[in-house]
Simulated scan of single mutants.
Amino acid sequence: MIRSEQLKELNRLILSEHRSRIISLFPSLADITEQDWNHAGMKVIQMEPNYMIEEGHFLEHAILILEGTVRMYKISGGGREITLYRIHSGECCPLMTSSILGESEYEASACVETPGLVLIIPVEIFRDWTDRYKNFRQFIFKSFAKRIVIMSNLLDNIHFKSIRGRISEYLVQMAVQSGNSDTLYVTHDSLSVELGTAREVISRMLKSLEKEEMIKLSRGKITIMNRTALENYIE
Score class of each variant (00 low, 15 high):
I158G: 06
S192Q: 00
R86P: 12
N153Q: 10
I14C: 03
G41W: 08
A62C: 06
L7K: 09
G41F: 15
E200D: 06
I121L: 11
T183C: 12
M225I: 10
M96S: 08
V112K: 06
L7F: 00
V44K: 01
M151F: 11
L25T: 12
I163R: 15
F26V: 02
I158C: 02
L59E: 10
T197D: 04
A145H: 04
I22M: 03
M151I: 12
H188V: 05
L195W: 09
E67V: 06
M214A: 04
I121F: 12
P27G: 14
S218W: 13
Y233K: 08
V44T: 06
F139N: 03
Q46K: 14
H88P: 03
M225F: 00
S98I: 06
R219Y: 15
M47S: 14
L171A: 05
I87R: 10
I158F: 11
G179K: 07
M174S: 10
M214V: 14
R204L: 08
S203M: 07
C92K: 06
I14Q: 04
V70E: 05
N135K: 09
F141Y: 12
E34W: 01
G56M: 14
D31P: 00
Y233T: 02
F144Y: 15
A145D: 07
G68E: 14
R199S: 09
L191M: 14
S99T: 06
L117T: 11
L29Q: 08
T197F: 02
I234A: 11
N38A: 11
Q177E: 15
R166D: 00
R137W: 02
T69F: 09
D31M: 00
G78V: 05
L84H: 05
L195T: 01
G179H: 10
P94L: 09
L117F: 13
Y170R: 08
V112W: 13
M1A: 08
M151K: 11
E113S: 10
S178N: 13
S99L: 05
G68V: 07
E200Q: 13
T97S: 11
I53D: 13
G220V: 05
L117G: 03
R219F: 14
F160N: 13
E5C: 01
W129I: 08
M42N: 08
W129C: 05
S152C: 03
I45Y: 01
T114M: 07
L64D: 15
V123S: 07
A62V: 04
R21F: 03
F136R: 00
R127P: 15
V44M: 05
V176H: 00
E200M: 04
I148V: 10
L101I: 11
T183A: 14
T223G: 07
Y51F: 14
Q177H: 03
L195G: 01
T228C: 07
R127Q: 13
Y170K: 06
E103S: 15
I158H: 10
A30W: 00
M225L: 15
N50R: 14
S152P: 01
I63D: 04
M225W: 00
H159D: 10
R137E: 02
L13V: 09
K221L: 15
L184I: 15
E103F: 03
R3K: 06
G196Q: 01
Y85C: 09
E105N: 04
F58E: 06
Y85H: 12
G116W: 09
I75T: 15
I121W: 05
E67W: 02
R164H: 09
G41T: 02
L29A: 07
Q173I: 09
S162R: 04
G165F: 01
